[in-house]
C-alpha cells in the first residue's frame, strides 16, 4: 500500500490540473460570448468605442485574452505542481 501512495498522489494532481483547465475554458467561453454578444447586439451605429475599437470587440478580443493569460499564469503559479514525469520515480 505504501508503495502505491506516491503514484496515487501524482494521479490526483494530474486530474486536478485537468479540471482547472476545463474550468478556465468554461469561464473563457462565457466572458468571450458575454462581452461580444452582450455589447455588440445593438445597431453598429450606436456602438461605444474604446481605444478606437467597438466596445464589444475591445472587451471580448483584447481584455478577455489578457485576463485569460493572467489567469493561466496565476493558475500555473499557485495550483500546478512540479512532479516527476518518469516512471522510475513512482517505484521509490
Amino acid at each position: 500500500m505504501n508503495e502505491q501512495s506516491p503514484v496515487k498522489k501524482r494521479w490526483s494532481i494530474t486530474a486536478k490540473e485537468a479540471l482547472i483547465g476545463t474550468a478556465i475554458v468554461i469561464l473563457h467561453f462565457c466572458l468571450w460570448f458575454g462581452f461580444a454578444y452582450g455589447l455588440g447586439s445593438g445597431p453598429p451605429e450606436e456602438y461605444r468605442y474604446i481605444a478606437g475599437m467597438p466596445a464589444w470587440f475591445f472587451f471580448s478580443c483584447v481584455i478577455v485574452p489578457i485576463f485569460i493569460i493572467i489567469l493561466v499564469a496565476l493558475a500555473v503559479r499557485f495550483f500546478f505542481t512540479d512532479i516527476s514525469l518518469e516512471e522510475e520515480e513512482e517505484k521509490k
Binding site: 494530474t14 490540473e17 482547472i20 483547465g21 478556465i24 475554458v25 485569460i68 493561466v72 512532479i83 514525469l85
Partner: peptide, 12 residues
Amino acid sequence: TGYFTLMILGKR
C-alpha cells in the same frame, strides 16, 4: 489552444 491542450492532456 494555447493552454487547454497541455492542461487537459497534462502531465498524466
